[in-house]
Design a protein around this nucleic acid. Structure first.
Length: 302
DNA sequence: ATCGGTACCTGCACGC
DNA sequence: TGCGTGCAGGTACCGA
């Protein structure tokens, strides 16, 4: 679900109802209902559940930001133990933060419920596959994993310098959060398609013009996806339950065997960095590695 | 530095 | 209907 545009959409949908609110309690339904709940929460939280609850209760939400695919909920605790803290939420593959009326039936795999000082409004965190994580960190960004620059903030020159020093395949680079933060499988494929670059092309081998095309494509793709509220494949929705629309304009992702909108060729699928990679073999030739010379003479590699 | 493989999980679509 | 298989938007870790 959650790459940069989806996380940005969630952040924007969280703000109106969450900023300024106080967290009054944190309930852990999976701990109560399920024998393996303790193990689930240990993986999700990486600290004892009681300490996590204590760190959040009474804290007021000051601001919500995005850092790559991480959601940063900036908090201030008042009173005797006044302090600034930050709740980092990574949605993993299937994590969902959603406002609910508590009376509604609990969505399966709801692991946390944040009570707020707002009537009739609770924030639920659910995550069927449990690849998500929540971390309480003191004092902001210091403890975050070292991530690369944000694709919407990096300059064209810096992007060129970073890309030109790398000998990895473009798809691998775009998925690498230390190279650039926020892209995932969908937006890597979609950006490469719009830039008309082959996913297996080598970063260092691109011309200045090709790098510029990739730079613009990434920004345009992400910007358009944010406007459309992200891509809703299977179950993604924002904090108010609204689906995104960007999947309607996917050019290659999830379109294996369908016709390219530009040239009519069939979209191919290959594996790079052990991830499904979708591309048009005709439009995305630029930078393609040379075909192996294998095969009997006269049969020329295609 | 880079890559492939594996691991972590559940849910779903599919073919038989 | 039920079963097995493969696949899914995430990261982290290991060994080569």
């Amino acid at each position: 679900m959650p790459e940069l545009p989806e996380v940005e959409t969630v952040v924007r949908s969280l703000r109106p109802l969450l900023v300024g609110r106080r967290i009054t309690a944190v309930a852990l339904p999976s701990l109560e209902s399920n024998g393996s709940g303790g193990r689930v929460l240990r993986r999700l939280l990486n600290e004892p559940a009681a300490a996590f609850q204590k760190g959040l209760c009474g804290a007021r939400v000051e601001e919500i930001r995005r850092h790559g695919k991480n959601i940063l909920i900036e908090l201030r605790r008042e009173g005797k133990h006044a302090a600034r803290t930050c709740l980092l939420v990574h949605l993993g593959m299937t994590g969902r933060l959603q406002f609910e009326a508590i009376a509604e039936p609990l969505r399966p795999h709801t692991h946390l419920i944040f009570s707020l000082d707002a009537p009739g409004c609770w924030l639920h965190f659910s995550d069927p596959r449990r690849f998500g994580k929540l971390r309480l960190i003191e004092d902001g960004v210091r403890d975050l994993p070292a991530l690369g620059p944000d694709p919407m903030e990096i300059s064209r020159e810096d992007f060129y310098a970073r890309l030109h020093s790398r000998r990895a395949m473009l798809k691998s680079l775009l998925l690498d959060q230390r190279f650039l933060r926020g892209l995932g499988n969908i937006y890597a494929d979609e950006s490469l398609s719009r830039a008309r670059l082959h996913p297996a092309a080598i970063g260092a081998a691109l011309s200045r013009g090709q790098v510029a095309r990739l730079f613009e494509s990434i920004r345009d793709t992400l910007a358009q996806a944010i406007v459309l509220g992200g891509s809703s494949i299977s179950s993604y929705v924002d904090a108010q339950g609204r689906a995104g629309w960007f999947q309607q304009v996917h050019q290659v992702y999830g379109r294996t065997g369908e016709k390219c909108f530009r040239c009519g060729s069939l979209i191919h699928r290959m594996i790079i960095a052990s991830r499904s990679t979708h591309y048009c073999p005709r439009c995305q030739r630029a930078g393609r590695p040379l075909a192996p010379k294998a095969g009997p003479p006269g049969k020329g590699a295609r």
